[in-house]
Measured scan of single mutants.
Amino acid sequence: MDVFMKGLSKAKEGVVAAAEKTKQGVAEAAGKTKEGVLYVGSKTKEGVVHGVATVAEKTKEQVTNVGGAVVTGVTAVAQKTVEGAGSIAAATGFVKKDQLGKNEEGAPQEGILEDMPVDPDNEAYEMPSEEGYQDYEPEA
């Protein structure tokens, strides 16, 4: 019985440690998101679009440190934060509304985080759909 109880105690310690790591990862992701939003706020009209992409990228980098179902929630929060940063930029006159959601080359930025393969159960990952990809044929 002692062996059984000791095993359960060790398992509990492992769960607590994993929860603490997840909590730490979420806190880091939130900190990076805040950094990115402050970065966007300090940019001029020309830099705002690039700044919004930076927020998304920093958040995406930190999301990889967070495991399990938390990833889905962090990704949703990050996307809403990026959308909010863009709205703030438009409201303050840093950028025109028609410039939001495009990178410096004018290509749409939507789907940055949505296409990231995420499995809350950590069982399997699927690649994003290939609808947006084109076949590449090298020139002879």
Rank of each mutant, 00 (worst) to 15 (best):
E139M: 07
A107Q: 03
A140D: 06
G36Q: 15
T92A: 14
E131M: 02
K23A: 04
T33W: 13
E105S: 03
E46M: 14
E126Q: 01
Q62R: 08
A69Q: 11
M127H: 10
S42M: 05
K102W: 13
G47V: 14
E114I: 03
Q24D: 12
G51W: 15
Q134V: 03
S9T: 03
T54M: 14
K34M: 02
G47Y: 12
V49K: 07
G111N: 15
K45M: 12
A53S: 10
G36V: 14
Y136N: 03
E13I: 02
K10Y: 10
E46H: 04
V77N: 02
M127W: 06
T54L: 06
T54D: 01
E126G: 08
K10I: 14
K10H: 05
V63P: 01
H50T: 02
K34C: 11
G36M: 13
E123C: 06
V74D: 15
A107M: 06
G36C: 10
G51M: 14
M116I: 06
L113N: 01
G41F: 11
L38G: 01
E104L: 07
G67P: 01
E13C: 07
I88F: 12
L113D: 11
V70S: 01
E130Y: 04
Q79S: 09
L113P: 11
A29T: 05
A69M: 09
L38P: 00
H50S: 06
H50K: 11
V82C: 05
A124P: 03
A56L: 13
V118Y: 07
E61F: 03
E114L: 05
P138Y: 07
G25C: 04
M127D: 06
K58T: 13
T54E: 03
Q24S: 05
E28D: 04
A91G: 07
E139R: 13
E110I: 04
A30S: 03
M127K: 12
M5P: 00
P108K: 07
G84F: 14
E137I: 03
A140W: 06
K96G: 13
T44G: 03
G101Q: 05
E104Y: 12
A107G: 09
V3I: 04
L8A: 01
A17S: 05
K58I: 13
L38T: 06
E28M: 09
M1R: 00
D135Y: 08
E137T: 07
Q24H: 04
A29Q: 01
M116R: 02
T64D: 07
G73E: 04
T54F: 11
A29G: 02
G73L: 13
Y133G: 07
L8P: 00
T22H: 01
S9V: 12
A17Y: 14
N65I: 12
A27Y: 11
K32E: 00
V71Q: 09
S129E: 09
V15A: 05
K45R: 07
N103M: 11
A19R: 02
E137F: 12
Q134D: 08
K6M: 04
G25R: 13
A90M: 14
G132A: 15
P128S: 08
A17F: 03
K10T: 03
G67A: 14
V40F: 15
E61A: 07
T33I: 03
P128I: 10
V74A: 09
V118K: 11
A19D: 00
A11I: 14
T54H: 13
G101K: 15
G106E: 07
D135V: 12
D119R: 01
P138C: 10
T92P: 10
D119T: 15
T59H: 02
T81W: 05
E105W: 01
V52H: 01
L100P: 09
N103T: 15
G86W: 15
P138T: 07
K96Y: 12
G67C: 10
A90N: 10
E130N: 14
V55R: 01
K45E: 00
G93I: 09
T54P: 04
A85Q: 02
E104A: 15
E114A: 04
A91P: 05
V95M: 07
M1K: 00
V118N: 10
G101R: 10
A11T: 05
K23R: 09
K60W: 06
G31S: 15
D115S: 10
A90W: 15
A89P: 06
E110S: 07
A17V: 12
L38D: 01
S129L: 03
A140V: 07
A27C: 09
V55M: 15
A56I: 13
G101P: 03
T22V: 07
A85G: 10
A124T: 07
Q134I: 06
P117W: 10
I112P: 08
N65E: 10
G106P: 10
F4C: 02
V49M: 15
K60D: 00
K58E: 01
D135I: 15
V49F: 07
E83Q: 07
G25Y: 08
D115N: 06
G51L: 10
A18W: 15
T59S: 03
E139P: 03
A124Q: 10
D115G: 12
S87I: 14
F94Y: 11
P128K: 05
A27W: 15
L8R: 00
K60H: 10
G7L: 09
A90K: 06
E83M: 11
A76R: 08
E130H: 10
V3H: 03
T22E: 00
G101D: 06
A27G: 04
G31F: 05
K58Q: 09
G7Q: 07
S9N: 15
E46D: 10
Y136Q: 13
M5V: 08
Q109H: 09
V63T: 03
V16S: 08
E104R: 04
A56Y: 07
V48H: 00
K23T: 05
E105D: 15
V74T: 02
G86L: 09
V37Q: 00
N103G: 04
E46R: 05
V48Q: 00
A90E: 03
K60Y: 14
A29W: 14
T75W: 10
T81P: 02
T33L: 04
G51Q: 06
H50D: 12
P108N: 06
V52K: 01
V40G: 01
A29I: 15
N103I: 06
I88Y: 02
D115Y: 15
S42W: 14
V70Q: 01
K45A: 13
Q99P: 05
K45F: 08
L38S: 05
A56F: 12
F94T: 13
L113S: 08
V74P: 01
T59K: 01
G111F: 14
G86K: 08
S9Y: 15
G106W: 07
G84Y: 12
A76G: 08
G86F: 09
Y125P: 10
V74G: 02
A107N: 15
K21A: 06
I88E: 03
V16L: 09
V71P: 03
F4N: 00
T44Y: 15
K12H: 15
D121V: 04
A140Y: 13
E126T: 05
T81L: 10
V48L: 10
V48G: 01
V63Q: 01
E130Q: 12
K96R: 07
A19K: 02
G41N: 03
K102S: 00
L8G: 00
E139T: 04
Q24K: 14
A27D: 01
H50C: 12
K80A: 13
V70I: 14
A89L: 08
A78H: 09
K102L: 14
Y39N: 03
K6E: 01
P128A: 07
K102D: 05
V118M: 12
T64K: 03
K43A: 07
A140M: 04
E20K: 02
G73C: 13
A78R: 11
F4T: 00
P120H: 07
V77T: 03
K45D: 00
F94N: 02
G31H: 07
T92Y: 15
K60I: 09
A78Y: 13
E28I: 07
A19S: 04
A76K: 15
V77L: 10
V52G: 02
A56V: 11
V63W: 12
G7P: 02
E28N: 01
V15N: 00
L100Q: 10
K34Q: 01
D135W: 05
M1T: 00
A91M: 10
G132Y: 07
D121S: 14
S87C: 14
A85W: 08
V26D: 00
V118C: 10
V118F: 08
D135R: 07
I88A: 03
E57C: 06
Q109Y: 14
K96T: 11
M1C: 00
H50M: 14
A18G: 03
Y39Q: 07
T92I: 03
